[in-house]
Every structure is written in C-alpha cells, then in structure tokens.
C-alpha cells in the first residue's frame, strides 16, 4: 500500500470492525490486513486509546479454557463512528474531485 494510514483513519476502521460484531485483538488485525498493512503492535496503542476515550469497552469470554478479551463499541463510540464515516465521505469526494478529475461533477 503506497498510502500511509493516519491515526484517525485507523481509529475509525477499528471502530467499524468491532461494530460488525464484538471481537478480539488478533482477529481485528487479521481483518484490517485486508485493506492496510498493520501489525498487532501498531494496533495495541490504538485499542488502548479507544478504550481510554471510552469509545471501546472490553469484556472477557471463555475460549478453550482461557479468557479471551473481547472489544465492544460503546454508545459514545457509535456516535464517533457515525462522525468518522461522515467525515470520510466528505474527504473521499474532495480527494476524488482532484485525483479522478471528478471536479466537473461537483
């Protein structure tokens, strides 16, 4: 991927992945890898930040005799995600207007 992913974009993508269904650290990374080149180490500070800002919360669920930590989007997180999606749509239209020469259509 030639385009670097900003912190805000990563935050919103993680929120979106967890919004689909509650999930755990390893799976979040695997899912994000479809689109961007991230490692679990890149994701840890992101998850921690989202938790501290109360956009994500965690709970433990038993899996194969151990507790696995699952992430869930909070109400505040849902609002933030809506906001992010809105901003992304605007951003995409603006970038496309230049990159894809779609300026005339606006």
């Amino acid at each position: 991927m030639g385009f670097p992913v900003s912190a805000g974009l990563l935050d919103s993508m993680v929120l979106s992945v967890v919004e689909r269904e509650d999930t755990y650290g390893y799976e979040i990374t695997q899912y994000l890898r479809r689109a961007v080149d991230v490692s679990e180490s890149t994701l840890y500070p992101v998850l921690r930040r989202l938790q501290k800002n109360e956009l994500l919360e965690t709970y433990d669920k038993e899996y194969m005799g151990r507790n696995r930590r699952y992430y869930r989007v909070t109400d505040k997180g849902m609002n933030a995600l809506e906001d992010y999606r809105h901003q992304w749509t605007e951003h995409k239209i603006k970038v496309d207007s230049i990159l894809m020469n779609e300026g005339e259509k606006l």
Partner: peptide, 11 residues
C-alpha cells in the same frame, strides 16, 4: 499490555 500480547500469541 502483556495480556494483549500474550493473547496475540495464543490466538
């Protein structure tokens, strides 16, 4: 932090 990384290894 340690728990997160331990789970990554286990998963």
């Amino acid at each position: 932090a340690l728990r997160y990384y331990e789970e990554i290894f286990l998963d």
